[in-house]
Design a protein around this nucleic acid. Structure first.
Lengths: 256, 256
DNA sequence: CATAAACTGTTTATAGCATAAACAGTTCAT
DNA sequence: ATGAACTGTTTATGCTATAAACAGTTTATG
């Protein structure tokens, strides 16, 4: 890859490129490839065949180059993956807030809208969920999404730590709920679900596993039909929990 | 592997072995290896060097056998991983409930105890967190843990779906919180945290990222000192959210 | 203007991975 | 006693990421 600013030397993989910190070089043959082209091809491949299909050789082949050519633009496959995920998140897109229509606090509406928006990104590029979260967000688009969520939480009475914690938790919640829904959807529902329950009844001991068996015997246990029901349930519970904290705090403030 | 009951033929990888469904065979040379020995060696290796160090060749070498010998006892590496995770969870261990000491509802205490207990398993075998969750729990120990959590939730007024959803959410919450705490702890804290924040200040646009920057400028943003603080925060919020649902429901019941 | 530095892409090579296939030895059911 | 069933080994295949050396191209500098 082209030489970098001194600043950019010790950054985690992909971050320098993601933030546009490498200066284009003047000398040398002009490049046909670029990180952007490679990432684009890799995303196309992952969308079509999953993250497991993304190998350096395959991406290069799709572009009409050799595997090693990619290493002129990316330090490692890890770097490619970081850039893919960042690009797949993309810019947050919110329908501009229609003011407070309902009687519920604005932070709830905003957070819910954020959750639905990022869920859509996961559904568009499900392979993002196959790339494990390694640490706090450091890539441009991930930080933009975090920013949007923090803006939704800004009007609340939460402390800085609480806001950060809540934001990270909400992000995890959407991620894991969506992942669960997609996993289940993959095993085209009713047949697979029946066979899962059948398996449980064959294997479980009615004594040691009475609650599990009771649950799956319950006729009221509807397989969540609409996509997003599971996420909605978890999200509303979490919002209620945050609200409880705020209410408690305000009542303490009032009595001081 | 030895021949299996007809029942055991179509099960997901590892499940048949985990539930002890393969009959030991009488004919043939007596085996020196066994799934149990292999899994034990693999866990020892993962504990010491991480999940990435677990290859069939390495596990076999540690046992003094060839790679291919493992395939006489396990269908695939996937099967090994499933069995490792199941064994690493192990039997749930709860200090027998000391009745209701505090004035809070028993389901809260029980759920909290469950969360802390499973968190300890993750801390003992952090590599469990590197193995992605693929679907609903099907292995014996995972189902035992689920059973224990459902028992804690049993006295609540939640419906069957709500209990299942809540249980899965709680499991996700503990998993992702612990993962985050371990990720951060890996980068031996203060130095790495400072450099992360420094990075943000160098890269972020004070306009486009005002909330993120404001947050990290806040002197009140304490790096959570005690292990488990992050988990506790998220957990209490979630418990509050569940409680809010129950309270709302009871008040509706009363007015009907 | 010539030369060297810097860059791009290719070829070749290595070490690791999961796992298939064929084979030799062992034990028990028939 | 014979053959089926089993265990473990050897050998081989096709993947993977990526290091190293090389050829060609462009541009900055002598």
């Amino acid at each position: 890859m082209p030489h970098e600013k001194p600043d950019a030397m010790e950054l985690p993989p992909g971050i320098a490129i993601a933030w546009g910190l490498d200066l284009p070089s003047t000398r040398g043959a002009k490049a046909e490839l670029s990180p952007a082209r490679i990432v684009e091809a890799a995303i196309r491949l992952a969308d079509a065949e999953g993250l497991a299909a993304v190998s350096m050789a395959r991406v290069a082949k799709d572009l009409g180059f050799t595997s090693m050519s990619l290493y002129r633009h990316l330090r490692s496959k890890e770097e490619l993956l970081v850039l893919m995920v960042d690009a797949a998140f993309g810019e947050p897109d919110f329908a501009a807030s229609p003011a407070a229509v309902s009687d519920e606090p604005g932070w709830r509406t905003g957070t819910r809208r954020w959750a639905k928006a990022i869920e859509q990104r996961y559904r568009k590029h499900p392979w993002i969920l196959d790339y494990p979260v390694t640490g706090p967000p450091a890539s441009p688009h991930e930080l933009l999404w975090l920013e949007q969520l923090l803006r939704a939480l800004a009007p609340t009475s939460l402390t800085a730590s609480e806001k950060l914690n809540s934001a990270l938790m909400l992000a995890n919640l959407v991620r894991s709920s969506t992942r669960m829904e997609l996993d289940v959807a993959d095993n085209d529902s009713p047949a697979a679900f029946e066979s899962y329950v059948g398996l449980l009844f064959k294997l479980l001991d009615p004594d040691k596993h009475r609650e599990v068996l009771g649950l799956f015997s319950d006729p009221g246990l509807a397989v969540m039909e609409d996509a997003g029901d599971e996420l909605s349930f978890a999200l509303e519970r979490h919002l209620d929990g945050m609200e409880a904290l705020m209410v408690r705090r305000e009542s303490i403030d009032r009595q001081d």
